[in-house]
């Protein structure tokens, strides 16, 4: 456990030093804050514009941070050869991958919480109070985003175990797009023949169902999110990330590092 914490601590420090991640965070914060100004362009539905822009900015930039940090998580250590002194110590490859991943999740969660605080401040200013914390599924939305970034981070870490940081980022972004389209594609395949349906189902299992972690519309319309629904989505995300991480450990354990 101490080893995991030590590796994740190093990962957090490394991530906070990366200019790209910091720049993305600054852009996200600026966009969340600007959502209030953009909302004045509309008439009537100002709240929904603030929420839509704010949450979309958080989600897009949070995903990009998870992709770019995750893609270099292990691949960069191999490229720079900083991995060798670590695995020379009594640290298993599984502990190394898990420690790096935990550090990544802690970083994306920290970034998200910073964005969530700014978003909550904008909403509190517009709605003149914090009643939205009670009247909207704000907490459930943030929780679903934490898990969503953890899923994206796990995929990036998986690719990072056997390819370069650039390719890993490209593959992860492709998986994210596929994950966002998965429910549409299944609907499309369902209308085709039995073979296409089977392929559709297989693809649906393999790619992450990111729509299961999308509660933005509930926030826009102040819908109550049933606890069972939220827990099912979060449970799916945690299990999927854990599964991808297990594959990552398996691949990395077998990798020849010479």
């Amino acid at each position: 456990m101490t080893k995991l914490l030590a590796i994740s601590g190093v990962t957090i420090r490394e991530a906070l030093r990366q200019k790209l991640a910091v720049n993305l965070l600054v852009f996200a914060l600026a966009l969340v804050a600007a959502s209030f100004m953009l909302s004045t362009l509309t008439f009537g539905e100002q709240y929904r514009v603030i929420v839509d822009i704010g949450l979309s900015a958080m989600e897009v930039f949070g995903t990009l941070i998870a992709v770019f940090l995750g893609a270099g998580l292990i691949a960069r250590d191999i490229e720079r050869r900083t991995l060798y002194p670590i695995i020379a110590k009594p640290v298993s490859r599984a502990e190394y991958v898990l420690g790096r991943y935990l550090g990544l999740v802690a970083t994306t969660t920290l970034n998200l919480l910073v964005m969530a605080v700014v978003f909550a401040a904008v909403l509190a200013y517009y709605l003149k109070g914090l009643a939205f914390l009670r009247d909207t599924p704000f907490v459930a939305v943030i929780a679903s985003m934490i898990v969503r970034f953890a899923v994206v981070g796990a995929i990036a870490a998986f690719f990072s175990c056997f390819t370069t940081a650039t390719l890993s980022a490209i593959f992860t972004l492709s998986m994210v797009v596929a994950g966002l389209l998965s429910s549409d594609l299944v609907r499309y395949w369902a209308q085709q023949g039995p073979l296409a349906r089977a392929v559709g189902k297989a693809a649906f299992v393999l790619v992450p169902n990111l729509e299961a972690l999308n509660l933005k519309e509930a926030m826009v319309y102040k819908d109550a999110v049933p606890l069972s629904f939220a827990l099912t989505g979060l449970g799916y995300g945690v299990l999927y990330a854990a599964a991808v991480l297990a594959f990552a450990v398996a691949v990395f354990s077998r990798r020849d590092l010479r």
Partner: peptide, 19 residues
């Protein structure tokens, strides 16, 4: 399909255009 999970956001962008 092109909205990639951000349908309400893209809807708002076109709404701002309509406004």
């Amino acid at each position: 399909v092109a909205a990639l999970g951000h349908r309400t956001f893209v809807s708002d962008l076109y709404w701002l255009s309509a406004v």
